[in-house]
Design a protein around this nucleic acid. Structure first.
Length: 962
RNA sequence: GCGAGGGUUGCCCAGUUGGUCAAAGGCGCCAGACUUAAGAUCUGGUAUCGAAGGAUUUCGUGGGUUCAAAUCCCACCCCUCGCACCA
């Protein structure tokens, strides 16, 4: 080994050896397989610290499983379908200043090359090469024979096959959906096209059609159930209203709405025709029919109604809506005769329809009174509304007067009721933004219905049921995410799966559309298996649907498939054999951002296409990476690329750092000071190994073992046990704590206590323990230890826990020494004295006996202070210490009571000769404190000037210092 | 608003089947060793009080359960992320 640790030399050397010897190119054999996949990266930039984290976790698992004896397949591909790469090519072609800056400086692309990346194809070619180079440089154990890019002609054949299959199964349907739309550009707006209102979401209101002389006055509401409590409608006399002709699904109606609402309606899936302006005054004071109850209610003037919200006409539910109540109250006693309203509005009776435990009959009235809201223009009215809505939504139940809906929870009613209203022709859905959205061009956006769109029918309940079943059977790591997955399945609606722009595969049954990029990356893990064969030169012309049917699903016959594809039977049989061997996916590990999209679709498509035995077995998710506390951004910075990290620190240090800096789901923060610390640790590991090897250390297990050796072995076993336990749960941080940091502390103590026999054995285990995490330096050490040829550490057996090497007495003995050491130090610190002599007194025999007796009683589950004291007192031999016994017993009993199981097991059969142990370590103590040390038993102290020996108890000797 | 996650000692971050938890590890800081010196490295210390191994107050806030709470229960406050046709 070299004197100094030089990462890049070691790393390049071993990467070449791994590649040359093809150790990570698995083929089916008799071993158990483990198929791990990480979502391939989307290549609109170089790989960054986020990728580094996710992929490194995957690689560590792959390496760990391999060392455990599994036949591990860990493949990788590149995702390029979709629009961002097309957009990036345009930006580069246009020399967009920010893009040029970010991609040259942060992504590290030489400017002369960047200048050439002006088409999507060139971008894909460039980044896929770079990404592979990067992943190799950090030592991922990927089988590169299987790589592909999602625009490969053969991959497109695979996607076409899949979408035809889904179409045949009726899982792809045609429909319309609402999008954010700029009327000026006549195009959908994406998030980066928005000037303000990025936060806006599309909210679905229910439109309820009140009727007046055959004309519809639609009211938009988020709470359609309140239709049962409507006492009147609100019309703002100061805004413009229009009468329009509305045609939807062939049904023609005449509506009256605000002018703004008319404008919005023209973008919906309705045909709209303007008829005439309608003076607001003519709309006030009329009687309109509640379409559900058939009751007639009056229309009244209100200033709080805004033309741009909803339809511009509002239904009034004063029992539950503070604004409605306030507006109504404001009209009490007012002269409304100019609207032709003569009746006394006090006669309008509030209608309560929701039972909520926080409120009585009229929640709106109570809230208004509690908050002291003055009128409809008081800002506190908003707050009152929120309070009432929130409480009613959570805990509210519908009352008897809602007919067949009585007893239903308010939180569940909206969907059901809206559907019923639509079916009866008296309701519709109306989409609106949660806040105003303005396009970059300055135009206010609208919700537009895109028609004739293709959807993946994820809302299909049978499909969802299968996914639930799949999740139930899977391991979700960490387990807390299971509920998240189930929630998201529940929440998922139909998803538009085709677009007009971007890279990708055309929909086979409707060629003008491109398959959306999340849809084409759901079951591609099978493609790694088949692509090993395709990549040897099988062209797309051979990849007929029958081939995929046979290889992936086992449908059809070998002969017919061969005839259909023109491929050899033997080759096809081999593909199928590989598929049957490797599938299903044992673990898909990914960043947590993919939970509500990719990982969900991954499950949906698997359950739709494959039989249950091919469903994924487990999913793991990990957190993000930030940079010195700042969020990273590919397009704006800050950004740390994988390459920058590896160039600066090396592969092993980057790996160790990213894995140890945060636990699985926690977000990690990449900090320079942290990497520097990791660097120090790896260097320390390296020089520890070098010193041992250069000293010519050999296996010490066969020689005679001292107590400290037994202690070391015992601790080592515990670290092995914990590391394996952590790896099983993918807790890489905790695994490293055990396999590296804690073990390092143990080794320090071992050496401090004069241990030396087992250094070679420790190293042998330690290198294997660390190999999945920092493989290059471990290979280097393993080689230096004399392993040659095929005997590389990447394929060496991972250490397993050996319970026979656990030695409780050795651990207790060291604990005694450590306790004593710390107590002496503490006394010196407090008294600030320089010791001239230290005297130790071990526990007297009677205390040890009592301790043992108490432990025994505890193990028989009958530890009781009183009983113990009586028992002791009855023994004449104990009379001498009679008055000390109760106090000591009390202490012992409470100590033992507060011990955990593990601790009690540790003490089970406690039989330590403390005097002997301390005497053996006399020289150690003398060295530590630089003065003579005398050791006595408290039974028989020949020197005890201050009578300290009486404080001696088991595991804590009494101390006298002068 | 809905859903999920989180608030720990100067900072980052462990620890939640309740009990060696004043609480791991790292950073920072302090002291010592080494060095001509600095750096690097190594050793020790780092809540408060204490001239004897102890005591006291801490784990977002306020209550509660328990012999015992960072850990369990209730309420509240604050922070981060997702909410879709975008990868």
């Amino acid at each position: 080994m070299e004197q100094d640790y030089i990462p890049c030399e070691i790393e390049q050397k071993w990467q070449k050896i791994w590649d040359d010897t093809k150790v990570f190119q698995p083929e089916p054999d008799e071993r158990e397989k483990f198929f791990i996949t990480i979502p391939y990266p989307y290549l609109n930039g170089n790989l960054h610290a986020g990728h580094t984290r996710t992929f490194t976790i995957g690689d560590v698992i792959a390496r760990y499983k391999r060392m455990q004896g599994y036949n591990v397949l860990f493949p990788m591909g590149f995702h390029v379908t979709g629009t961002p790469i097309v957009g990036l090519a345009e930006l580069i072609a246009n020399r967009d200043p920010q893009t040029m800056k970010v991609y040259s400086e942060l992504h590290g692309i030489p400017i002369d090359i960047l200048d050439t990346l002006v088409t999507p194809e060139r971008i894909v070619e460039y980044f896929s090469k770079e990404a592979e180079k990067d992943m190799r440089s950090i030592g991922y154990s990927i089988d590169w024979r299987r790589k592909f890019t999602t625009t490969d002609p053969t991959y497109k054949k695979f996607i076409e096959w899949q979408f035809n299959l889904l179409y045949e199964k009726g899982l792809i349907v045609k429909g319309s959906h609402p999008v954010k739309w700029c009327p000026n550009d006549n195009n959908p707006v994406e998030d980066h096209d928005i000037l303000h209102g990025e936060e806006a979401t599309i909210v679905d209101y229910t439109l309820i059609k009140f009727e007046y002389n055959g004309i519809i006055l639609p009211c938009a509401t988020l709470r359609p159930e309140t239709i049962f409590g409507v006492t009147n409608l609100w019309i703002n006399p100061d805004i413009e209203h229009v009468k329009i002709k509305v045609e939807k699904n062939g049904k023609k109606e005449e509506w009256i709405v605000s002018r703004e609402a008319y404008n919005k309606l023209t973008f919906t899936d309705r045909k709209i025709e303007f008829i005439e302006n309608v003076p607001a005054a003519s709309l006030i004071g009329i009687k309109v029919k509640n379409p559900l109850t058939g009751n007639y209610v009056i229309t009244l003037p209100a200033s709080f109604v805004k033309g741009e919200n909803g339809s511009g006409i509002v239904m009034s539910v004063p029992a539950h809506a503070p604004f409605d109540y306030l507006a109504l109250k404001d009209l009490y006693g007012q002269d409304l005769s100019n609207y032709g309203i003569k009746e006394d509005l006090r006669n309008i009776k509030l209608i309560s329809l929701i039972e909520a435990k926080e409120f009585g009959e009229y929640p709106a009235v109570e809230a208004v009174q509690q908050l002291g809201v003055k009128d409809q223009n008081d800002p506190k009215a908003e707050e009152a509304t929120k309070i009432v809505y929130r409480r009613e939504f959570h805990g509210g139940v519908l009352k008897e007067n809602t007919g067949k809906y009585a007893g239903m929870a308010v939180s569940k009613i909206k969907e059901v009721l809206t559907k019923d209203l639509i079916n009866q022709g008296i309701g519709e859905v109306f989409y609106e933004f949660s806040e105003p959205v303005v396009c970059r061009c300055g135009t206010p956006c609208v919700v537009n219905m895109v028609e004739g769109q293709w959807f993946l029918n994820y809302s299909n309940p049978e499909w969802k049921d299968k996914v639930y079943r799949c999740i139930e059977k899977m391991d979700i790591i960490p387990e807390e995410y299971r509920v998240e997955f189930n929630n998201k399945v529940d929440w998922l609606k139909d998803k538009a799966c085709a677009r007009k722009k971007g890279l990708g595969t055309h929909l086979p049954f409707d060629n003008q559309w491109l398959i959306e990029s999340l849809g084409d990356s759901t079951i591609y893990m099978t493609y790694y298996i088949t692509n090993k064969f395709f990549a040897r030169g099988i062209g797309p012309e051979h990849l007929t649907p029958k081939l995929f049917d046979y290889v992936l699903l086992g449908k059809g016959s070998l002969q017919k498939t061969a005839a259909d594809t023109g491929l050899d039977e033997e080759l096809i049989a081999q593909m199928k054999k590989d598929m049957d061997y490797w599938y299903p996916v044992d673990l898909r590990s990914s960043g947590k951002d993919l939970v509500p999209n990719h990982l969900l679709f991954f499950l949906f498509h698997h359950v739709a296409i494959f039989e249950e035995d091919k469903w994924p077995r487990s999913i793991a998710v990990n957190g993000f990476v930030s940079l010195e506390g700042q969020k990273m951004s590919k397009s704006k910075g800050p950004l740390l690329t994988l390459r920058t990290a590896v160039n600066k620190y090396g592969a092993d240090i980057s790996r160790l750092y990213i894995l140890s800096s945060a636990e699985q789901t926690q977000d990690a923060d990449w900090r320079n000071s942290g990497v520097e610390a990791a660097k120090k640790q790896v260097e320390r590991f390296y020089s520890f190994a070098r010193e041992i090897i250069e000293a010519g250390a050999v296996c010490g297990m066969c020689g005679e073992l001292k107590l400290i050796d037994k202690w070391m072995l015992s601790r080592l076993q515990q670290r092995i046990r914990e590391t394996n336990k952590d790896m099983l749960a993918l807790r890489t941080r905790s695994a490293l704590q055990n396999a590296f940091y804690l073990l390092l502390n143990d080794i320090k103590w071992y050496q401090k206590r004069g241990g030396s026999n087992l250094l070679y054995d420790i190293l042998d285990t330690w290198v294997r323990l660390m190999a999945p995490f920092i493989p290059h330096v471990c290979e280097e050490i393993w080689h230096a230890m004399g392993h040659r040829g095929d005997d590389i550490v990447s394929l060496a057996p991972y250490p397993i826990f050996n319970p026979e090497l656990i030695d409780k007495n050795a651990e207790l003995a060291e604990e005694l020494v450590d306790n004593t050491l710390e107590d002496i130090e503490e006394i010196i610190k407090v008294t600030k004295m320089t010791p001239k002599k230290v005297v130790l007194y071990t526990s007297p025999t009677w205390k040890k006996r009592i301790f043992q007796t108490a432990l025994k009683m505890q193990s028989e589950n009958e530890l009781n202070g009183g009983v113990l004291i009586k028992k002791l007192m009855s023994d004449p031999a104990n009379r001498t210490y009679g008055k000390d016994i109760p106090k000591f017993v009390q202490k012992i009993v409470s100590d033992i009571n507060s011990m955990k199981m593990e601790r009690l097991e540790m003490f089970a059969g406690y039989e330590l000769d403390e005097l002997e142990i301390l005497r053996e370590n006399k020289i150690f103590f003398e060295k530590e404190f630089g003065c003579p040390v005398e050791i006595y038993s408290a039974d028989d102290p020949s020197y005890d000037p201050e009578n300290k020996s009486k404080f001696a108890v088991p595991m804590r000797p009494a101390i006298y210092i002068e």
